[in-house]
Structure formats: C-alpha cells, structure tokens
C-alpha cells in the first residue's frame, strides 16, 4: 500500500509485533517521534554502509586488473 504525505510517497511494511514493541521501548526519549522514523533511519544507515563497503572493496589495484583484462579482451585501448 502506498500513500502520499508532504509530497513524499510512503509504503507500508510489516515487522513482528514483539520486535516493534522492543523498538518502541528503545526509542523512548531518543528524539525519534515514531517507530517508522526509527526504522527508516536504521535502514538508510544499513544501505549506505553497504554502498560504502562495495566502493571500498573495489580498490585501485582491482581497477588496474580489470583494465588489463579488458585490454586483453579487446574492450579497451
């Protein structure tokens, strides 16, 4: 289900109720105004961490190896 709020689109996801209760307790007094805002924050952090990991994992040395292979295959001068 998708709904629009303040010009942004939102979708509903389901998580187990015991987990939701735990999160609610955890965010008390932290400034997070809702379960959704906390879950959104955590997911953004996870995704951004994964993206940084893949950039870091592909080193300059890896790049040179790829270029060498591409030259051998005729894809690069």
């Amino acid at each position: 289900m998708t709904e629009e709020k303040d010009g942004k689109k939102y979708t509903t996801i389901s998580i187990p109720t015991p987990l939701a209760d735990k999160i609610k307790k955890r965010i008390e007094g932290t400034g997070f105004t809702s379960l959704s805002s906390y879950v959104t924050y955590v997911l953004r952090e996870v995704i951004s961490g994964m993206e940084e990991d893949s950039e870091e994992a592909f080193s300059k040395e890896d790049e040179e190896k790829v270029k060498d292979r591409l030259r051998a295959l005729g894809y690069l001068d």
């Binding site: 993206e51 893949s54 950039e55 994992a57 592909f58 790829v66 292979r69």
Partner: peptide, 11 residues
Amino acid sequence: TFIKLNEMIKD
C-alpha cells in the same frame, strides 16, 4: 576482482 566489479557497478 570481477565479482567485486559487478557488485560495485550494481551498487
């Protein structure tokens, strides 16, 4: 190296 390239590009 090529697995890493694939993952980096998909990201």
